[in-house]
């Protein structure tokens, strides 16, 4: 479980996050949704320590992550897997080397064991045999899947995903969502997904936090999203005519 308490984040005069508190539950897909500039990615980066909150605290289980220095954070960070919006694969390394990279640094496994783990992760994301390709040789969807394979290589307790569907076609988006969902259940991970894709919200949103203007505006499961009278949330979720038409069936 991850808990954020009263998180504020300011960049110069711009207050991006304004006192957000939330709990992200274990074994569930926790979605952070909201319009562009609402502070979703900033919140995610504050949770994982890429940004230091101006005020507030982040707890992984009962450990206060915010108060730890870089070295103290390493044991928690080795339990974190993250998929970035643009996958952030190391472009000088092959697919296999990307997946084995954290294993090389943080485990004492033999080369054979690491190779087996890399192959297992690749098979898990349906990319068996793509070991020797470089990121430049992969499609957008394949890059995302390699990013997921690298994120799960250390068998993390926490999975963070930033905009998993950006730049992907609807079919590939659904495949990525299903993969995230399956892995969350399989490894009993605390998964936090930042998205504004409504398919993801309706498909895998076990627990949704809606941000608006840097504040938490709504929280609940996806089943309740169609029945809320929260105006900002309704404006966001049912912005398209397709979603408006689908609302009556939800």
């Amino acid at each position: 479980m991850i808990e954020v308490k009263d998180i504020y984040k300011t960049f110069g005069d711009n207050e991006v996050l304004k006192g957000i508190s939330a709990t992200f539950q274990t074994g569930k897909n926790n979605l952070i949704i909201g319009g562009s500039g609402s502070g979703k990615t900033t919140l995610l980066k504050c949770i994982v320590g890429l940004h230091e909150p101006t005020k507030g605290q982040v707890f992984f289980e009962d450990e206060n992550f915010t108060e730890m220095d870089f070295t103290e954070r390493v044991p928690i960070r080795t339990q974190i897997g993250m998929l970035f919006q643009n996958s952030a694969l190391f472009d000088s390394m092959t697919v296999e080397e990307n997946i084995m990279f954290p294993l090389n640094l943080f485990t004492r496994q033999s080369k054979q064991e690491k190779l087996e783990r890399a192959n297992f992760c690749l098979e898990r994301v349906n990319l068996k045999g793509k070991n020797k390709l470089y990121p430049a040789e992969l499609s957008g969807g394949m890059k995302k899947r390699v990013g997921i394979a690298r994120a799960i290589s250390m068998q993390p307790k926490y999975l963070f995903v930033d905009e998993p569907n950006s730049g992907l076609d609807p079919k590939t988006s659904i495949l990525i969502d299903e993969l995230i969902n399956e892995l969350t259940t399989e490894y009993e991970m605390t998964t936090v997904v930042v998205t504004h894709d409504m398919n993801s919200v309706m498909g895998i949103g076990d627990h949704i936090i809606f941000l608006h203007q840097g504040q938490k505006w709504w929280e609940g499961p996806h089943k309740e999203i169609a029945h809320t009278d929260n105006k900002e949330l309704n404006d966001f979720v049912f912005a398209s005519k397709f979603m408006q038409a689908a609302k009556s069936k939800l």
Partner: peptide
């Protein structure tokens, strides 16, 4: 390039200095 493509962020998330 590693900075703007979030590769440095990826290193930091893994706990790499």
């Amino acid at each position: 390039t590693m900075r703007v493509t979030e590769q440095i962020d990826a290193l930091e998330i893994m706990g790499v200095n």
